[in-house]
Design a protein around this nucleic acid. Structure first.
Lengths: 93, 93
DNA sequence: CTGCCTTACGACTGGCGTAAACATT
DNA sequence: AATGTTTACGCCAGTCGTAAGGCAG
């Protein structure tokens, strides 16, 4: 599992469509599709239902989405916190 | 930034020593050292003070550590939640 | 036949490990 | 000299993109 996979998952969940999510992520469809498959494989369960119109979240996918957003938000917060800490305490003499 | 980097950071922070952290992660020192350097580079600031005895957390590193643990915990929770959801709702007819 | 997801495949980047270099006591 | 981190370097694995395949309406 990687942060890239998680970002991919969130994008597909929000777009409901691999193609659109791929454009949003500046990526082509196949790698993005593989990200999702890899994630599902690792979790041992499908996260989306494949329809002719796109991808629809399954219950497991909905459950994962909440965590995924928290993870990404926490990463973002970590970056900001560190940069702030580095400025606030340039040297701890 | 990747989850691997974050795990590496936590291990080094806890061990205070790249060598021991590497053994704990079943990894050799050089890649682990590179993870830390890569993270510091990406964040734009050092996270550890290098001493002849090992690695000591700087204030920025301490700030990052709290977030890092939350991220890893959240990932873990995500995995468990999904597996549970997949079992609880095998098929939503 | 059209739209969408997935698999095949060749090419490239990234990451590992061994070995060597640097630094400090 | 000993301990610990970092750089050099060759190799393997993972990931990308283009192209082809499969499936449902």
């Amino acid at each position: 599992m990687s942060l890239t996979h998680i970002q991919s998952f969130v994008a597909v969940a929000e777009e409901g469509h691999v193609g659109r999510a791929a454009r949003r992520l500046h990526l082509s469809q196949p790698p993005l599709s593989r990200h999702i498959l890899s994630l599902e494989d690792e979790l041992g369960t499908p996260l989306f239902e494949r329809t002719p119109r796109g991808m629809r979240l399954l219950p497991a996918g909905t459950a994962f989405l909440a965590h995924a957003r928290r993870i990404l938000a926490e990463v973002d917060a970590a970056v900001h916190t560190v940069r702030k800490a580095a400025v606030d305490v340039p040297e701890a003499n």
